[in-house]
């Protein structure tokens, strides 16, 4: 574990997670979740878990985002107030 990188990435994780559940536009929320997945994949590579890191980048940030956008294409993009 490299402590400065770790601290910075974990701080960004909390900020991105809060943004993802706060923002009203659902497409923006999904893209923020994808960014969250990429940052946490970087955290795992930096914590010596390379296998978990590249699986998360492929499955979490790639496939899950594609599923969610495909589902969102069938419904309304805005969240109700």
């Amino acid at each position: 574990m490299i402590i400065p990188i770790d601290l910075l990435a974990l701080f960004f994780l909390v900020v991105i997670a809060l943004a993802a559940i706060t923002v009203r536009d659902l497409l923006a929320a999904i893209v923020l979740l994808s960014a969250y997945s990429f940052v946490i994949a970087a955290v795992w590579v930096e914590m010596h878990a390379v296998d978990v890191g590249f699986t998360e980048a492929a499955v979490g940030a790639g496939a899950t985002t594609a599923f969610m956008i495909a589902a969102l294409a069938r419904m309304k993009r805005e969240e109700k107030r």
Binding site: I21, L26, T64, A71, L72, K80
Partner: peptide
């Protein structure tokens, strides 16, 4: 309240 937001919460 939104089901999509609940799913995002599940992921986090």
């Amino acid at each position: 309240n939104n089901l999509m937001k609940k799913l995002i919460g599940l992921n986090i």
